[in-house]
């Protein structure tokens, strides 16, 4: 996984609440057996006209002023619905590395961290202000610094944000958590041996 430390980028505003994972990447693109190549289908139903190929000029991602943006700004409950990790894969493949919203759905939030994407929870009233600033200023950029847990605004002000220390560490170091867990293999084995005695019906495959 690619590490996340700092990111300065144009901000793309998706001004909707409850952006669900069906909207982020519709079901027809989930048939892939690979992680890559989903960026062109990101927000497919909103992004293209009825023919499925012509970009919808009304949708923000297609507007030149937001071209190359790597930070997404959205509303409450971003990433709700299905657990599909195809949603962060599509965002990442498109180039999105950070998402700012008042709240995120739990599974999507976790999935972001597995893919080097930083979801940032920011209070709703502040998000309201950011939407206004982005709208007003072409080329509006923010700089996210994970180490100091802050977002640098164009006027030099800093917006602090909260993040779990373990998730932060994994993202900054780009850690593969399966390797981390496998280092604890002995603990897992001893748990299994202990638990098997108390609840043998859970281990029909491991009877002594």
């Amino acid at each position: 996984m690619e590490a996340f430390k700092k990111l300065k980028s144009v901000v793309i505003p998706i001004d909707r609440a409850n952006v669900d994972t069906d909207a982020i990447i519709p079901k027809q693109f989930l048939k892939t057996i690979h992680r890559t190549g989903l960026g062109k289908s990101l927000f497919y139903d909103w992004r293209y006209l009825a023919d499925g190929v012509t970009p919808n000029p009304d949708f923000v991602i297609n507007q030149p002023r937001y071209k190359g943006g790597r930070i997404l700004l959205s509303r409450e409950n971003f990433g709700s619905g299905s657990s599909r990790e195809h949603a962060p894969w599509a965002l990442l493949d498109f180039g999105i590395k950070a998402i700012i919203a008042p709240s995120f759905a739990d599974i999507f939030y976790n999935n972001c961290f597995k893919n080097g994407i930083l979801p940032i929870r920011i209070e709703r009233t502040i998000v309201d202000g950011l939407f206004k600033d982005v709208e007003r200023t072409t080329g509006y950029q923010l700089e996210v610094d994970l180490e100091s847990q802050s977002i640098l605004l164009p006027d030099g002000k800093k917006l602090p944000f909260e993040i779990d220390s373990f998730l932060k560490k994994c993202l900054i170091e780009g850690l593969d958590d399966i390797s981390l867990t496998l280092e604890k293999k002995a603990l897992i084995t001893s748990y299994e041996n202990r638990r098997r005695k108390d609840a043998p019906w859970l281990f029909p495959d491991m009877t002594a």
């Binding site: 657990s83 990790e85 976790n110 999935n111 958590d177 399966i178 867990t181 496998l182």
Partner: peptide, 18 residues
């Protein structure tokens, strides 16, 4: 509970989740 594909892999490999 539901998990993403990375966590599916984590459970396959370790029978645990963080």
């Amino acid at each position: 509970f539901g998990v993403g594909t990375s966590e599916v892999e984590h459970v396959m490999a370790t029978q645990t989740l963080i």
